[in-house]
Amino acid sequence: MGKDFEILDHTADVGVIAYGTDLNQAFANAARALFSLITELDDVEEVLYRDIELTASDEESLLVGWLNELIYRFDAEGILFKRFDIIQLNDTRLKARSYGEKVDSSKHKLKTGVKAATYHMLKVDKTDGYRVQVLLDI
């Protein structure tokens, strides 16, 4: 098993490439990459979960929508997620359960603020394993 995700340098922002043996895993790894930018994942415990369901017109939009939903949960509810169980994923629909805990400043070091996931450089590639790419505005 190779790496789960890579962080790409971009002058103003930061790119994420995530891999998986299927699309579900690639989406889960993209979410892990997102939270690895925000905090140290090792410091996060699984004490709560949130269910997320969303629809979009295609897989690329689903990926952006998925990450933006997680950014929203972090920003509005203060939840750090570390594990993602993608229950259903097809061209237009995603259903997932995400595990983590609320930010505790005595325990979690917050690193980078992420404003949003963008459609720039967006890719869902299934040619050689599953590989997804997205640019985050930080």
């Binding site: 933006n68 950014i71 920003d75 404003k115 949003a116 996931a117 963008t118 505005d137």
Partner: peptide
Amino acid sequence: GHQICTDYVA
């Protein structure tokens, strides 16, 4: 503002 942009780009 971030969320307004996110919502409207979609």
